[in-house]
Design a protein around this nucleic acid. Structure first.
Lengths: 277, 277
DNA sequence: TTGCTCCTCACGTCACGTGAGGTGGC
DNA sequence: TTGCTCCTCACGTCACGTGAGGTGGC
């Protein structure tokens, strides 16, 4: 049997069939053929493209390289210049970037999950009418990545230290997109100056600090960053009236911010502080 | 203090500074400004773009959405039409696709790792001169995803069952890009017909079958798929001569194939079968 | 004045996707 | 003959990247 005969026996799939079997788009196969990256085994006398089953492996390999972010020009080099040592080096050379990219995507996915959760908690508070009252709520534990202590100077604005926090954490390599909150050492320091938190933190799944699970005194307020209104006093009054003793820091988190709300005056913040049983 | 004054106080970063602080490219920021997705807080009298520190959060959020594959048109909708319920739904709606994409990337990364490892083992065999001899080697355990048994009919070609294996595993949703091998029930069935394996398998980290770690009789041969030359006899002879008893299946794996080698006649296959201690 | 940054606008690029207009196979 | 697939070629698209040519700030 001649080589040509073997070829025409093996090459049995039209472009549509091959596209279906490989999950590729027809136009992608045509494009790969055009640039000489991957071509059908033979062209029929009618100029049709005919692919062979064992070409699936090759096209899958190209797809994998493409998913891993390898540019077609490099893939062409790979295909044209095949030699085990060179291919191995080329593959190994891409691993660092790929792993970093996967990390980024996973971080981004976690972030999107947290953001969605926070927005959901804000909606729930709105729906339950908790928005304007102080209440006791069970809260689950959460990991936080905490910044250094803010030493506020006289008349210093909220944003100057906020900017410091961002640029420091950026230098330290944190993915600064995670939601940011402010914390106060305890309820009395919160009441004393509720607009300038002692520390900023990221709500970050890999944070070292753990806000423990338990019963929290929870209140909400609307307004732009650093504008906590009279929330601190309302929480303090509630604690006094109900003879509740608070323990640990006050956590301020924006449930609705520029991500989910257009007007800054409608940003929704939640303050929470743990109570002793 | 007027709103304008507050703005000009906050907006202190030029486009280059803001690009540095956010890790974005200048041209990206200009592009986002142009299409109205994200603009600097103010424009100076000189028409310069001036960004504020607290805009970092917003641009980071856009970057995250972009990493997660959200098209800019959708992001524009998100930004223009901000309402907690809508944003939450939109984010939740993207999770399925994102998670699938992360899975794909992780699979692809694992695959690239396995391929690199196989190529490396081929290079090692070449360098050590093991290519033309039979030897006893320690091999580590490896996970395999095994296909159904091949019932070869008279004169049936290697590729027909190979095609069946590919299309069946494709229907079952396996990522068909993982390296494929062939296995034989035992050494005698391998000797009987070394070109038509009893089963095909994927070298797949999530496979159920485990090729155990241990001492293996190992041999190599060069040639296209299904062409095993006299390797089976050489292994059998070696076992007889050295009075080695083999146990379990014979595994055939291509260490060098179309991925790393240009000429099919140079594909490098390794056959291995476990020996009793 | 020099070197640096900033601006706009137009065009380039990367990896395809989408018709238009025409042919081939059952 | 009809409906379907295939072909080529040109142009569109998406998210920027890259100069060209000119202005502004220290």
């Amino acid at each position: 049997m001649s080589s040509e005969k073997i070829k025409s026996k093996e090459a049995s799939l039209t472009i549509s069939q091959f596209a279906k079997v490989t999950g590729m788009h027809k136009s992608t196969l045509m494009y790969y053929d055009k640039i000489g990256l991957f071509s059908p085994l033979i062209r029929g006398s009618n100029n049709y493209r005919y692919y062979a089953l064992n070409q699936i492996t090759a096209v899958n390999q190209i797809r994998v390289l493409s998913i891993l972010g390898m540019p077609v020009k490099v893939m062409q080099q790979v295909v044209r210049n095949r030699e085990p040592g060179a291919i191995k080096k080329l593959l190994e050379g891409t691993f660092g970037e790929i792993d970093a990219q996967i990390d980024w995507m996973q971080d981004s996915r976690k972030l999107a999950g947290i953001v969605t959760e926070l927005i959901g908690m804000g909606i729930e508070a709105e729906n339950n009418g908790e928005e304007f009252i102080i209440s006791v709520k069970k809260m689950k534990s959460r990991r936080l990545l905490i910044g250094r202590k803010n030493e506020w100077e006289r008349d210093e604005s909220f944003f100057s230290k906020f900017g410091d926090f961002l640029s420091i954490s950026m230098k330290e390599g944190h993915n600064a997109a995670f939601p940011i909150g402010g914390m106060f050492e305890n309820l009395s320091s919160y009441v004393e100056n509720s607009s300038l938190p002692d520390r900023f933190f990221y709500i970050h799944p890999d944070g070292k600090h753990k806000r423990p699970a338990g019963d929290y005194l929870v209140g909400y307020t609307r307004g732009y960053y650093g504008d906590a209104g009279d929330l601190a006093f309302r929480i303090n009054d509630y604690a006094a009236k109900h003879k509740l003793e608070t323990v640990g820091p006050v956590y301020n988190v924006y449930l609705h911010d520029e991500i989910s709300v257009a007007s800054p005056s409608n940003y929704l913040m939640r303050a929470s502080v743990m109570i002793k049983p």
